[in-house]
Write a protein that binds this DNA or RNA. Sequence first.
DNA 1: TACTTTTACTGAACACTGTTCATAACTTTG
DNA 2: CAAAGTTATGAACAGTGTTCAGTAAAAGTA
Lengths: 203, 203
Amino acid sequence: MGVKERKERDKAEMRDMILQSAHKLFVDRGFEEVSIRNIAESIEYSPATIYLYFKDKNDIFYALHTEAFKKFNEYMAGLLDIADPFDRLIGMGERYIQFTMEHAEYYEIMFIMDNPMDCDENSEKWEEGNKALAAVEGLIMACQQVGRFKGQDPRVLAFSIWSYMHGMCSLSLRKRLRCYSVEDGKRIPRESFESFKLMLANL
Amino acid sequence: MGVKERKERDKAEMRDMILQSAHKLFVDRGFEEVSIRNIAESIEYSPATIYLYFKDKNDIFYALHTEAFKKFNEYMAGLLDIADPFDRLIGMGERYIQFTMEHAEYYEIMFIMDNPMDCDENSEKWEEGNKALAAVEGLIMACQQVGRFKGQDPRVLAFSIWSYMHGMCSLSLRKRLRCYSVEDGKRIPRESFESFKLMLANL
DNA sequence: TACTTTTACTGAACACTGTTCATAACTTTG
DNA sequence: CAAAGTTATGAACAGTGTTCAGTAAAAGTA
């Protein structure tokens, strides 16, 4: 009697369809421009139907936020064959920037938007962020075992690195590099990141 | 015939009244929760009246954004009597954090929100941001004249510092420090900033 | 003072938004 | 085949930003 199983599969499929549509609309038009009605229309269902699969709009943001971290981890997974932990850490930084450029819509939900953090499940611990950060902390400790980052608190250093990376990426996404000329807007962040790598190497 | 003058003064007063009310509402309720109708009600005018003084809602954000930078500069003005440029730079960092904590609503408009950057006047050059950044760049060059930051490009270093500061502040404002325990959420940023100061001192 | 023009303001409307709920249609179960 | 359960929806509610015709008061002019 695989009826229950099929129903559950159908339900999951519908959820996925809503999320995919929402994601596509976010990429195409930006966040403010996407409404529940838009999403409903794009999957050819009534707006009310969305509420059978998601508690409210923030719940959709939260689900997309989880999906975003999955994608983020995919970006980082390719670095596992780099043996030296310091090189891997640097690689993470590079991929972080790459992820931001290629998936601005995900980055926004993960680190900039307010909404997903107001969601019930996310309000206490922020599991996803914790896991990602723990990975960096682990990498820093591995660096310390080969003589790097002496005397540094791994948790503090991980936060410092994250702050710098996020600062750079979010200023760019939120158009605060407009105070630079077009060429400086590219050159300065690039050179900044280069000198940041150097700084870490000499720490 | 001071009629024209008085009318202009009245107009400016009304603009100010709208801005003050909007600001107060933003502080009290947060951004998403404030509508043109709310603002209109709080100054006891019709919603349509607002549009005689501001092009649209973004125009209000833009005006507040300019006001925010004025406040920001007030915070920085107290540092002018610090003779050593490096100490003054460090002082700026401390005030930056202080400003963020005490005027989260302003910080949001200045560096996080999308809206004010979509405004006509702000779309090209972002004058306010440029001026603030130029001040930091000037301070760094002053540091270089007393032997600090040798071989560093002042514009690049200013951006690096800004990125770190903004990353830390915006992650905190947008509740991304929830992945830490309550005590770590305070301890880690504080220690991070301490070690950042040390890093600058040894650069 | 009387008439005209300019200015300041508003009520009502338009096209949206997130969300809820009674109702209807289809599916599975007894 | 009827009862029960599931799934989907139209219509409504209260809100949003924004526009515009119309009004009333103030200012300028004769």
